[in-house]
Design a protein around this nucleic acid. Structure first.
Lengths: 186, 186
DNA sequence: AAAAAATGAATGAACGTTCATTTTTGAAAA
DNA sequence: TTTTCAAAAATGAACGTTCATTCATTTTTT
């Protein structure tokens, strides 16, 4: 078995279960079924480990979501596809969501690197600009559009994971992405 | 000067400046201008201190936002007032926002208490239900409505604090709350 | 001068990291 | 195929540091 992957998976599991605050190297090692020292064969240290995991998730996310983008299709269809894929990504592996949320606001990294936090939004950005050019998306400032798309997505997933709503219910995702579309379309 | 308040303010400042991860009792004491031991005269320990601060901010927030609510006025006016007040609250003291965000996803508290996280949403909830009853707000599930209101607010403040947009610019808040209203109104 | 508040050095536990030692691997030799 | 053995991988006890908390002592208040 790939130990590097096992270690990363342990961090993911532990951060979700107990939070960043209670995360420590011994627990990570135990959960991964390796010795504490082994972690240092694959990562420079705790900080490096955390950052590597973050990078991995961001890449997976972008890869997944961008698969829903097809130049040939209209903006609206692309929008629906991408929203749905983004939601599916987090519902399939809720630990990813919890980790990203905690990481974003618990900077291990230095302040300069914090701009990278917006990397997650790049697919949305791309689609947004295209829609504005075609005149199907309202001509309001980018930041507001971004807030109207990313914000609700974030909150609905939080609510789902807290069992305040159920996105797996038939039609739930449609209702949601249509509501968001209504917010941003002309 | 009230030492209890000074200690709480220190935590707020430090969490925003360096994050939860680097927070420690000696720094808190130094920043507050008291001895480390003094903190324990006012709080049971670190966890108690953090939780007390969270409770304080949530109360202040709700008090502020609910001042924008007037039973005599139409739902739309109340909505605009409350959104604006909520934004003002965080812009006036950005440390509050940063703290709440970090706290919400870095549970010191045990999982059971996590439902309290939704306490912050109570004013929105109240307004939402009233609007639905009057037929001025769309009849979609509460969770989706909540996501369409709370989510964008959260994100726009994040973007503002990251200097990706400027909510203090003339008309910016209007543009924003009107966009959100468009998303939720019939 | 008694009571209350504050201090900060001391304590011990927790934790990240290191490294001397052990185990595993796999290619070459028998 | 079996044996050998050097290199690579893995181990986990030990180390040094950090940090929350305590409490004997000092300072302030009444």
């Amino acid at each position: 078995m790939d130990k590097k992957q096992a270690i990363l998976k342990s961090v993911l599991k532990l951060v979700n279960r107990e939070g960043f605050y209670h995360l420590n190297m011994k627990k990570i090692a135990q959960e991964a079924g390796v010795a504490a020292g082994t972690i240092y064969l694959y990562f420079k240290g705790k900080e490096d480990l955390i950052n590597a995991l973050y990078g991995m998730i961001v890449n997976e996310f972008n890869q997944n979501v961008l698969e829903g983008y097809d130049d040939g299709k209209p903006v609206k269809a692309n929008f629906f596809n991408m929203i749905d894929l983004a939601i599916d990504f987090y519902l399939a592996e809720p630990d990813n969501f919890s980790f990203i949320e905690q990481y974003t606001y618990a900077p291990f990294l230095f302040k300069e690197n914090q701009d990278e936090n917006f990397t997650l939004l790049l697919p949305i950005y791309k689609m947004m600009r295209e829609g504005k050019k075609q005149g199907v998306i309202r001509n309001i400032p980018d930041a507001i559009l971004l807030a109207l798309i990313h914000g609700p997505m974030n909150t609905i997933i939080k609510l789902h994971l807290a069992h305040k709503t159920d996105l797996n219910k038939k039609g739930a995702k449609q209702k949601f992405h249509e509501a968001v579309w209504q917010a941003i379309s002309v």
